[in-house]
């Protein structure tokens, strides 16, 4: 049985259908990526899975339990968390407060211990715990956003375009951390525009077009697929953007 099982998910914004019957699965400890162009429905899929949007139709099972339409705070308590697009750290709050809020679902004692672990992953945040999150650079904010999500000790971590707008060096570090997280046994569902990088760290992938899954398979198979090479990897040159 999969940790996350999504059947025929449909998400609408008013009359616009953003996600049109998407089915996907993530096993415990697995790293899965969702690829697709802008407007393919990737962000809407993640928002619905995190409980920020109510699906118009379909079914979501987490750890075998039906969680379709559960609000975000209930899913967070079950171990489902999302690092949203554009980081969305709490700018006027300190880095420490951001991390503590990440551990909102845990006990204070738990939070203290997890904080040590998270600072071990992102040591550059440690000396700046009491400065405001809004003063961090984009890359540091992304690290804080990932750290904040880890504070809840999730079982499923979803990331929406974590490398968006970041310098190549920082992007490299983010992908390293994501693969370390996946290796530690946390299931990862990664939405990325950096298709090459994403397929390098994920075991499997889904390709979304106009709100539907048009292709799925192992990362190796997707990297070799003509359609993927042409549409997402730049004319089959085998290198990322």
């Amino acid at each position: 049985m999969s940790l996350l099982e999504v059947r025929d998910l449909t998400v609408r914004y008013g009359a616009v259908q953003a996600v049109n019957g998407v089915s996907l699965e993530v096993e415990a400890g697995e790293c899965v990526t969702v690829l697709g162009a802008n407007g393919a429905g990737k962000t809407s899929t993640l928002k619905a899975l995190a409980g920020l949007m109510r699906p118009a139709a379909g079914e979501v099972l987490f750890d075998g339990r039906a969680v379709t339409g559960h609000p975000a705070h209930r899913l967070a308590r079950m171990g489902v968390t999302l690092v949203p697009e554009g980081r969305q750290v709490f700018g006027p709050l300190t880095i420490r407060e951001n991390l503590e809020l990440g551990g909102f679902v845990q006990t204070a004692d738990h939070t203290r211990r997890t904080l040590e672990q998270v600072l071990g992953v992102f040591p550059q945040l440690a000396p700046r715990l009491d400065s405001l999150a809004g003063n961090l650079s984009g890359g540091e904010q992304q690290m804080l956003a990932v750290g904040r999500a880890l504070m809840s000790q999730p079982r499923l971590l979803m990331l929406d375009e974590p490398s968006l707008g970041l310098a190549p060096l920082v992007t490299g570090r983010i992908f390293e951390v994501v693969s370390e997280i996946a290796a530690s046994g946390i299931a990862v569902l990664l939405v990325e525009q950096n298709v090459h990088r994403a397929l390098q760290i994920a075991q499997r992938g889904y390709v979304l077009e106009l709100g539907r899954v048009v292709l799925q398979g192992s990362s190796t198979a997707l990297l070799a697929d003509d359609h993927v090479r042409l549409a997402y990897l730049g004319h089959g040159m085998g290198e990322g953007e």
């Binding site: 920020l52 975000a72 949203p84 709050l93 809020l101 999500a149």
Partner: peptide, 21 residues
């Protein structure tokens, strides 16, 4: 109180933290 300040900044992000906004 921290939950209130988080909601004031970004209600969706606060909900993702597990806060019943």
């Amino acid at each position: 109180g921290k939950a209130m300040r988080a909601i004031a900044v970004n209600r969706d992000a606060a909900a993702l933290m597990g806060i019943n906004t």
